[in-house]
């Protein structure tokens, strides 16, 4: 086994505002190896984007506070290092693509300027050289007339093209790890596929590792090697995608899979997960999923579930792993 490129260990994040404490991450553990594609799957509010923001050290404090755990990138302690030193890693060795490219691009600078900024900020290239490299990147992510479009602004691009610009910025300095936070959520379905294809292509070219944050099971199944399923600020199940999706070990993963309409479920009712995700200021005692779970017993209502090795490469935090496993 190679050393993981990124390790998140028991990460805890709180948001404090108005006397209320929102527990956004409650001991998130996750790792990814070089060259691997890992997906973090979860509903809105499950803590997946917050975790990514914490890794990139983009959380505004206050209101966000990291109250425990560690993040290691290439063996280096991320949360403890001076911010200026971490910023030097950002863009160069670890990069991020955000969900909404329209608001994530600066509206008053041309996209070419914003891409070239990476070269300037990291002292790689300046002036015309940096601009020429920006044009090359636009070409690489499939933007027609790149030399001309480099002078345009974010609002002059279509949604898909804007996301391509974001991707161009992320890969500019050939990072070893790319975090893509719901990169296709804001896009049309047809464009979604193109963007995922582009990401996968670029990833494979440079053997970059990629963390794909998404709530889209289809995307996970298509591109990821490993998956971590998050619920109420914890990774409740993780393991190889093929195994986890074929036969979940956690009741939540199972419910999630059951809720997806399939080609052979024509004419049947959809099976949504009943109830709504927990209020993170008042997470239920025991297993956070128990109010919505059909396997729930008194044990689930009172005690936090242990981490169970479903198979040697898989972990699920559920009191009823066997029952779930046999049910699926």
């Amino acid at each position: 086994m190679p050393d993981p490129i990124l390790e998140i260990d028991d990460l805890r994040i709180e948001f404090r505002s108005g006397g209320e404490i929102v527990h956004a991450a409650n001991g998130v553990s996750f790792q990814i190896n070089p060259g691997e594609t890992a997906a973090i799957l979860g509903e809105s509010g499950s803590g997946k984007s917050v975790t990514a923001a914490a890794v990139m050290r983009l959380l505004q404090s206050p209101p966000a506070f990291i109250t425990g755990g560690a993040v290691r990138f290439k063996g280096q302690d991320v949360l403890g290092m001076p911010i200026a030193k971490w910023r030097d890693y950002c863009g160069r060795e670890i990069a991020m693509v955000f969900q909404d490219a329209l608001t994530s691009l600066n509206p008053v600078f041309s996209v070419g300027w914003q891409i070239a900024e990476l070269f300037r900020a990291h002292g790689v290239a300046f002036g015309r050289d940096a601009n020429a490299r920006a044009v090359d990147l636009l070409n690489r992510v499939g933007i027609p007339d790149p030399a001309l479009r480099a002078k345009d602004y974010a609002h002059q691009f279509s949604g898909g093209m804007r996301q391509r610009v974001m991707i161009a910025m992320a890969i500019a300095l050939g990072p070893d790890l790319l975090i893509a936070d719901e990169p296709t959520t804001a896009l049309d379905v047809t464009v979604q596929a193109q963007i995922m294809e582009l990401l996968e292509e670029l990833r494979a070219e440079s053997n970059m590792a990629m963390i794909l944050i998404t709530h889209d099971l289809g995307v996970v199944a298509d591109v990821a090697d490993n998956v971590a399923v998050m619920y109420a600020g914890r990774v409740v199940e993780r393991g190889p995608v093929s195994e986890v999706l074929a036969r979940p070990g956690h009741a939540y993963t199972l419910a999630l899979l059951d809720s997806v309409p399939r080609a052979n479920s024509l004419g049947q009712h959809l099976k949504p997960i009943i109830g709504s995700p927990p209020d993170l200021a008042r997470i239920p005692k025991g297993c956070a999923f128990h109010p919505r779970c059909r396997f729930a017993t008194d044990l689930c209502r009172n005690e936090e579930p242990p981490s169970v090795a479903v198979t040697p490469r898989r972990i699920a935090e559920c009191h009823h792993v066997e029952a779930v496993f046999n049910d699926s």
Binding site: G91, A95, N106, F109
Partner: peptide, 25 residues
């Protein structure tokens, strides 16, 4: 704003984040 987050994620220094990205807007 989101674009300030992007700038930080790109590794842009804090002075430039404040006086270029944010101030220009």
């Amino acid at each position: 704003s989101a674009y300030v987050k992007t700038a930080r994620a790109k590794g842009v220094g804090e002075t430039a984040v404040i006086f270029v990205h944010a101030l220009r807007n």
